[in-house]
Amino acid sequence: MKSLKARNNKLSNTKSQLEVLEGELFQTELPTFQTKTAQYGQPGLKPNQLEILQINMGYMCNQVCKHCHVDAGPDRREIMSQSHLQKCLGILQNHNIPTVDLTGGAPEMNPHFRWFVEEAHEIGVKEIIVRSNLTIILANKKYYDLPDFFKKHQVNVVSSLPFYEKKRTDAQRGEGVFDKSIQALKMLNEVGYGQVGSSLQLDLVYNPVGAFLPGSQAELEAEYKRMLKADFNIDFNQLFTITNLPISRFLDYLLASDNYEDYMEKLVEAFNPAALDGLMCKNTLSVDWDGYLYDCDFNQMLALKVDAPKSQHIDNFDLNVLSQREIITNQHCYGCTAGAGSSCQGSLI
């Protein structure tokens, strides 16, 4: 399988995705996200204090998951340069941002990844999160020592494992991914990740393999812990349940499988106003490989830059200007407010 971009799929053009999200369904049958939040007294969303800088280090990935909202894959060449990464370090330091969240693609494939983590550790960023797809650890000899590297720099590892069984995981992430992920989790456990009493945090991400919403995070976490321990003797800390947002390859899947309308209806029906205050875009800024700024990684993939014309790039990063901005929303945002809410740190409620 290739990325939408490599396949010249219409949806690789972000305008086409927005056309779908703003299409007939939301002109006739369902309320737009903005109408909905206005009903709850929030016609426009404003950010709170910035706590997380999420850096997308590039769209290159060793996997091509069917649901990927980044449209990542081995055929993507967008990679963040060292000079951009250096500027991100400056921003983290100047503004005392406590958390840096490294994502991709596979962030480890960026040739400056290790240098960046070392520097971030050095300048005292409190929390360094890496969103590792696990299989990268086994993809090439040069990555085998990643668990030790993560440990050395006290990196929190957050990894996708959409199900604790092979069939469903492989259906979403590709043939053989489950077995490799289990092997990688064992390697992380061996160096101390996810163990009781250890400071080395290993969290897993559950996202539904299909057009349905996640169930209770607490119940699924208990089930994951029981099954992974019994079947593979694997330990981890927390399970984050994440709702698939209707963009990029997941949107392509929804349309191709004739699930789009039902899925959007489900998201709208499950709208939970209590999730609004905890939305990820309230305390996070997302940076793309080219240095542009977005309210979140999803808006990045829709090419919706922050609504702050004077500070849309790390070159002119101005926190005062950015904190006055209004968050750009569209119908994909219903994915963050459905049920117990959803973010990169799991459910919100």
Partner: peptide, 11 residues
């Protein structure tokens, strides 16, 4: 079927 899948039931 959907509720069971949401709650993590396998096929």
């Amino acid at each position: 079927t959907e509720e069971s899948m949401k709650k993590g039931a396998s096929e």
